[in-house]
Design a protein around this nucleic acid. Structure first.
Lengths: 350, 350
DNA sequence: CTGTTAGCGCATTCAA
DNA sequence: TTGAATGCGCTAACAG
């Protein structure tokens, strides 16, 4: 029961005040607003503080000020799962950049006992950035109940809450255009990871929906026959390397083999590049690949990956900015982050 | 000043107690220990709680219980820098795994205004896991002063604090043996990233020291001539892809070109593989590579990377376990995590 | 420039 | 089973 540490009887502001012969307020000022007391008393206080090993209790300070100086990033899955995807680290980097600048800490949050609303109720943070919002999520109510500001990433652009995203639908359409324009018909689509295992059936990813819509639009534009459409393959995929690699091997071993894959995350493309090499297939001659993300580390892929380039760092940073705005009293607003299709060498004409 | 949210006048336990016609204690029990009140009052309390939108204030609870249910990961650099290295994400995954299991949150911490001891004093966490401890750091005193339990990763194995690490010295020696045994002499060494920019000169990385020691031992074993040793090249390197790529290109363009590189992180090896391809060099025929980390994503490298395999996830998990132990009152202890040299195809005999 | 007085919102001992 | 009283450690009006 943590007795070891409590046994030290943490020295408090009261004790220091007594020892220094001043009031608690004076001590408080010494630590937070030194200008308001004389240099003499300041020095005396700090001197004794050092001697008896005093430092203010952060939690008590938070209770009194109502400011945790911490923001949370709320993920739909445990940290241990979600961080398998390198894309997430970039998002965190972006958020972290502003946190560091503003002196905020960043807390990683995930559903408490599987329910995300619990986390929203219990986290000691000033605001949150939330990912993977389900279309029908009740999480918005939870936030409203706590009167807590938050910003979503990759959720609904036209909702009343703050959102940061890219134009998934039109980018997805363009990406699909490339495949279809180059004659590909036997195409494999890799899903984004289900949001939570036990909720797998009821997950409604807004991003995934938008991308699907874009694909559909492209398909319609190209007047594919029913027969063509029936050649599409849909595959469930995770977002860490090993499973993607296995999945890719499976797909590439199919008979007939698809001529191209539409990945929803670079890490999936990694799997296909690696699997192709293992099977003696070459990209793009034997197999074409397109993807979403275009991580900086993906530059290692040869030939270069044709992909939707989205700057995850920028998205994180932008979300953090919108949150800080709200923390300063501004109203929620949404932002569309620029993204583009980068054509490199991973698609062949067939 | 956050008026928007405070204006809602958060509903408190007192208000709920009045509305329900019970004492604050009853409400507290309803949320924390329902068995101690009758089902009737419980239901009534919860009913009204829902109606008026009450949920307990996490911060007040923390102040009263002295438990934040949060642990911190303290990095020597801002999150935005440190997360460029994929290795870090693995560490976080490991820590996160146990946090999730035990219902703890995980806060990412970095030096406050450049001073790490400040962070230690001000973070609202029950304990910390700390990385990149400088040999002469005063951070240990800061922890002692707060009576806060902590665990270091990759610090001193024989200190009085808790530490998790691998046998860097002997692994490094083995890795170097491979290079020397295969006839390499013109070898390039890539440093680990300096801990903090403004402290660059006074940084004393324990890990880096140990590895250097291992290398030295290998060199001595192989009776290298002074002339041989003078061919060694030492290069400062960062741990994100783009800079590594540029650095690699530079190294590979040197005349005479080194025959091999000793990387201290996979991400550096990524740079060399990519740069080699760009320059029309092949690994290992034209250039050999060895590295530390062996990330799962590194499996994409062909030929396979000869590297020290360390399970960063395991290290994080182990550190979290040691910390939880201390939180339960146990004494600090250290653990050596197994690691091994994996010989694959990235080293040629010359 | 300094000190006094109230809380902040909840958990918990003890008595009823 | 319930409630009153007390304390957690600090900040912030306000008064001196």
């Amino acid at each position: 029961m943590n007795l070891v540490y409590n046994a030290f009887m943490k020295v408090t502001i009261k004790e220091l005040a007594e020892k220094a012969g001043v009031s608690k307020t004076a001590v408080s000022f010494a630590f937070n607003n030194p200008k308001r007391i004389s240099a003499d008393t300041y020095n005396r206080i700090m001197q004794i503080a050092r001697e008896i090993g005093y430092s203010p209790d952060p939690v008590a300070r938070i209770l009194a000020t109502h400011r945790t100086q911490t923001i949370g990033m709320l993920f739909p899955q445990p940290v241990t799962e979600i961080f398998k995807n390198p894309h997430i680290a970039e998002l965190v980097r972006g958020v972290g950049a502003l946190c560091d600048e503003k002196g905020y800490s960043l807390t990683l949050l995930s559903p408490l006992k599987g329910v995300i609303d619990h986390t929203v109720q219990n986290a000691a943070v000033d605001g949150m950035i939330i990912l993977g919002v389900d279309k029908y999520s009740t999480v918005h109510d939870a936030f409203r109940q706590r009167s807590m500001p938050y910003v979503a990433i990759d959720a609904d652009m036209n909702a009343e809450y703050s959102n940061v995203g890219i134009d998934d639908a039109s980018l997805s359409e363009k990406l699909m255009d490339i495949l279809l324009d180059n004659g590909h018909r036997r195409i494999c689509f890799c899903s984004l990871q289900p949001v939570a295992e036990d909720l797998a059936e009821s997950v409604h990813s807004i991003t995934y929906d938008a991308r699907t819509q874009g694909i559909r639009k492209s398909v319609e534009k190209h007047n594919l026959s029913e027969e063509d459409k029936n050649q599409f393959i849909y595959i469930d995929s995770e977002t860490s390397f090993e499973p993607c690699f296995r999945m890719a091997k499976e797909v590439l071993s199919k008979n007939p083999r698809p001529t191209a894959v539409f990945c929803n995350a670079d890490i999936q493309a990694f799997g296909f590049y690696s699997a192709a090499q293992d099977l003696g297939l070459s990209i793009p001659e034997d197999f074409s690949v397109v993807s979403f993300d275009d991580l900086s580390i993906s530059r290692i892929l040869k030939p270069g990956l044709t992909a939707v380039h989205q700057n995850a760092y920028e998205k994180g940073l932008c979300a953090a900015k919108l949150l800080m705005e709200q923390l300063d009293g501004c109203a929620p607003r949404s932002t569309l982050v620029p993204a583009s299709v980068e054509e490199r060498g991973s698609v062949a004409r067939i």
